[in-house]
C-alpha cells in the first residue's frame, strides 16, 4: 500500500510582486525518490525551503510526514533531514564531532550516536578518518558524509537541495548509491537537481519552469510522452513551451 508522505495543494510563494512558486500541487509517495527538476531560478529551492519550514508559504496547503506545515512544524522538524547545496558540516570540527553534534541536537542517546556513527563510518569505509577535521577531507567525501549525517536520526524523509553541485560525475554516481541505500532503509528522498543524468535515477520527477510545475511523472513516461531518448531532451522541450506560455 503506497502512502503519501508529502501532500501539497496550491502552494504559492510570492516575494513582493514576484511569484517564485505558483500553485504547486503534488504528492510524494513513501519510499520513493522524488526529483525536483528545473533551471536555476525556476523556484526549486524556494519550494524545498518551504517544505523544510525555513520559509513560510504565502498561501496553499502543505503536509509533511503526516503533519500540517503551519501548525505542527516542531513535529515535522523531528522527522525530516536536510542537506543544502551550501555545504552543511562544520569545517573546524572532526567527522566524529560533527556526527556527535548533529546526533545530539536531534536528541539521539549517546549510545545510539556511537553505534550509528560506527555503522556509518564502516559503510563509508572511513573509520580511520573519524578524527580528521572536515576541512581536510576531499570535497566528494564531504558530500557523502554530509548526506550520511543528514539521515543519522533516521528521518522519514530527507530533503536534498542540489546535493551534488560542483561534484564530478563519478562521485555523483557514488553519491546516488548512498541515496539508494537510504531508500532501502525506508527513507523517502526529495531531491532537487539540474543535472539531467541524475534525473534518470529518480522514481518520479516534477519539472519546474518559471515557478510552475509543468510535468510530473516517471522518467520513462516523460520520455515516452515527449518522444525523446534522454531527459535532457524532455527538459529542453518543456522549458521552451513553458517560456512561450508565460
Amino acid at each position: 500500500m503506497e502512502k503519501d508522505i508529502i501532500r501539497v495543494r496550491n502552494l504559492t510563494k510570492k516575494f513582493g510582486d514576484f511569484v517564485a512558486n505558483d500553485q504547486l500541487t503534488f504528492e510524494v509517495k513513501k519510499g520513493e525518490i522524488f526529483g525536483f527538476l528545473g533551471a536555476n531560478g525556476a523556484g526549486k529551492t524556494t519550494a524545498i525551503r518551504m517544505l523544510c519550514g525555513l520559509s513560510k508559504p504565502t498561501s496553499g496547503e502543505m503536509e509533511v510526514a503526516g503533519f500540517d506545515a503551519y501548525t505542527q512544524t516542531e513535529s515535522i522538524k523531528k522527522n525530516i533531514g536536510y542537506m543544502s547545496q551550501k555545504f552543511s558540516l562544520y569545517d573546524d570540527l572532526t567527522i566524529w564531532e560533527n556526527i556527535r553534534f548533529f546526533g545530539g541536537i536531534y536528541g539521539l542517546s549517546r549510545s545510539a550516536i556511537r553505534d550509528r556513527s560506527k555503522e556509518m563510518l564502516t559503510r563509508l569505509g572511513i573509520v580511520n578518518l573519524s578524527n580528521r577535521l572536515i576541512r581536510d577531507i576531499p570535497p566528494g567525501w564531504k558530500q557523502k558524509i554530509a548526506f550520511s549525517v543528514a539521515i543519522l536520526h533516521k528521518p522519514q524523509i530527507v530533503f536534498l537541495d542540489e546535493p551534488t553541485g560542483g561534484v564530478d560525475p563519478v562521485t555523483r554516481r557514488q553519491f546516488w548509491d548512498l541515496i539508494y541505500e537510504a531508500i532501502d532503509q525506508g527513507i523517502t528522498v526529495f531531491v532537487t537537481t539540474h543535472y539531467m543524468d541524475e534525473a534518470e535515477y529518480c522514481h518520479r520527477l516534477s519539472m519546474m519552469v518559471n515557478g510552475r510545475i509543468v510535468a510530473l511523472d516517471s522518467p520513462e513516461a516523460l520520455k515516452q510522452r515527449f518522444g525523446s531518448i534522454s531527459m535532457n531532451d524532455v527538459f529542453v522541450q518543456l522549458a521552451r513551451t513553458g517560456e512561450k506560455s508565460s
Binding site: 542537506m83 562544520y90 536531534y106
Partner: peptide, 14 residues
C-alpha cells in the same frame, strides 16, 4: 555564511 544556520533551523532546535 557557511550555510550551517539553515541546517540548524531545520533541526528540532528552536
Amino acid at each position: 555564511e557557511m550555510g550551517t544556520m539553515e541546517v540548524l533551523l531545520v533541526s528540532p532546535l528552536n
